[in-house]
Structure formats: C-alpha cells, structure tokens
Nucleic acid binder design. Structure first.
Lengths: 173, 173
DNA sequence: CCAAGAAACTTTAAGCTTGAAGTTTTTTTC
DNA sequence: GAAAAAAACTTCAAGCTTAAAGTTTCTTGG
C-alpha cells in the first residue's frame, strides 16, 4: 500500500519493483473477501437473533444448543455438545442450566462415569424446538431468497474449500 | 431428507409427490449453506481473536473500532462509527472509553453540536494499529492460503449477491 | 420565543463468552 | 496399590453486546 509512493528516481522503480502489482505482504483481496463474508454472517445472524427474541422470546445460543440435541435421540455428553458447537464447556454450564429450568432439557449423570453429564431434549423441549426450527428455516429461506440455485451450489463448494483452508492453517500445517 | 423413505405403495408416489424433490417448506439446502458460512466465519474469527490476544493483548472489537478510525484522518462522529460497525451506540461508549484510557483514541465534543462526539486515532494509536493491522493481514492470508484466485473472485461475487439478498429481505421488500 | 419532538449519546440490566483456576472422578504409571 | 496425570465438568472474573430507559442538546412548528 505504501509502495505506491511515486516520486522516486527511476532506478528505484527498476530495482525490484515487479512487486508493485503483487506485493508480497499484500493480502488486500483476502481481507476484502473476509470482510464481506463477515458482513453476510453478521447481517443474517443479527436478524435471526432479533426474530427469535421477538417471536419466541428465545436466544440464539439456546436455539443452537437445542439444535444439537435434537438429532441425538438418546441425549449427548456435554463435552460432545461443546465440541460440536465450538464453544467452551464453561459456557454450556449456564446455558444448560437455563434450559433445564425451562423444562426443555434433562441432565443426567452417566452411571458409567460420574464425571460425565448426559444432556437430552425433553418431550416439551422437542416440541418447542420443532416449532422454532420451522420458522428458522423460513427465515433463512427468506434471507437467501435472491440467491440462485447456481450461486448456492457454488458457494457451498467454495466455502467448503475455504473451511478446509482455515482448518489446515489451524492444525499448523 | 425424511422424504427418501421409499417402501410405500405406488399410489402414494403418484398422489401429490412431485414435491418430494422440492417440498414447499424445505429450506434444507439454504440452511446447510448458512451453517457452512457460519462455520467459516466462526473458525476464522475465533483464531483472529486468539492471536490478537496472545500477540498484542488486544481484543477484536477494539481492533475493529480502530480500523474504522484509521481511514478518517480528521476523526469520525460516534454515530457514524456505530453505523459502519453495525453495533449499538451504547456498545461503543465503553469501547471508546477504554481506548481513550490507553491513549490510542481521542474524543472531542463537536463545537457545532454539543451532543456530538468526534473520535479519532492519536499518533500512538495510529502507530499501534499499523503494526497490528499488518499482522492481521498476514493471518488472513494464512487462513485463506489454500483458496485459489478463482475461488476468491467467485466467492467475492457470490457473497456480494448474498449480501444483496439479505439486505433486500431486511428492508422489507 | 417556546413547547414538543427529535437526535446523539450514556447508563443499566440481562445475557453470552472466554480463559484460567478449582473440583471431582477416572486412568495411568511405577 | 498408591501417587501422578488426565478428563469432565463448574466457578469466576473480565469483557462484549444489546434493548430499553434516561440525559442533554438541537430543531421545528406555531
């Protein structure tokens, strides 16, 4: 970016400046892409939160937790929920407590290992989630309405590769 | 998804089931895309937060605020920062206060309108931001490393359309 | 001018989130 | 078979975030 300063002798230009167009440390394109991705995520997420609150007086973290539990008929170990949701265990403690109080979730100590908690949706929780999840699906459909099938497929693919790229960077390759 | 259950009489298949492939209320594809987008955003953002903390003992919200101020040579009205960052003004109050305490940001009451605060980076803030922003750029480059030029361009385009779709849904069209 | 309304914040209560430290229970190692 | 290490949480302090309510300062309509 600072490389565009231009009042120097021609020697400087010839010296090693093929890089002007593609400077080694220039990640401008990636940063703009990152910001756009973040904007999409933030806009949609904020709206989902708003509607969840207005329509159901519910929060997104609670919804996400219930979504994880929905697929596990027999419940799920807390640590597994933590891993899947990519949040800390400490975070879940309070979240689960709230949902237990509401009667949406049950919490049982594993008989095999008394350190382990097994979390599951109650019947009531399952029913409540079904209703919210249906609306949630409609909202997403609405927010993504103008996206063509092709764009959807294309985004799915490319974001898959991005996810792989990030994961590989995180695993220190 | 559940629609793939297949052992029924052919009558059922003929009955009204063109929709098996495209049920009216099925937003499965969009939801999967949404979750993938969110995963990418979360993975990258979490890592950026971690590195910002480890390397500079700094937080992402503070970095984002300084990033907004960096381009405004003469400072920026608080409300404008709020709009650009898509966060509430109440949020910024405390954030700005912290950065003022650190000496990175100055806060001035506008002489034209005493309700208005003008926020700007100090020299020290600008210098500190430069250093962090350079590293930030490198991190993004690293996380996006395995993405081809073509994928980048393609994502930029398609996410632009997604952004448009979300925005149009929000403006109640 | 002046009251009503709008605008630009600030304050507050509630909730999410994390990293670090602490507890209990199980597993490993010698 | 202890002591040490590891695992699965829970607790805590600090920080971010928002919506709603409150304050101060313009702006406007009469």
């Amino acid at each position: 970016m600072d490389d565009t300063k231009n009042g120097e002798s021609q020697a400087e230009w010839l010296d090693g400046e093929t890089k002007v167009l593609e400077a080694p440390g220039d990640h401008g394109a990636e940063i703009r892409l990152w910001l756009r991705l973040l904007t999409c995520a933030t806009l949609a997420e904020t709206e989902i939160r708003r509607r969840l609150r207005e329509e159901f007086d519910f929060t997104l973290p609670r919804f996400d937790l219930m979504a994880q539990l929905e697929r596990a008929e027999k419940g799920m170990v807390l640590g597994e929920v933590s891993r899947r949701m990519m949040v800390s265990a400490g975070n879940l403690t309070a979240l689960v407590e709230r949902l237990v109080e509401m009667g949406y979730v049950s919490r049982t100590v594993s008989p095999k290992d008394r350190r382990v908690q097994i979390i599951a949706l109650t019947g009531e929780g399952r029913a409540a989630f079904r209703i919210m999840a249906d609306r949630h699906g409609e909202w997403i459909g609405e927010l993504f309405k103008d996206l063509s099938r092709q764009d959807e497929a294309l985004l799915m693919e490319a974001l898959g590769r991005l996810k792989g790229s990030i994961r590989s960077a995180l695993s220190g390759v």
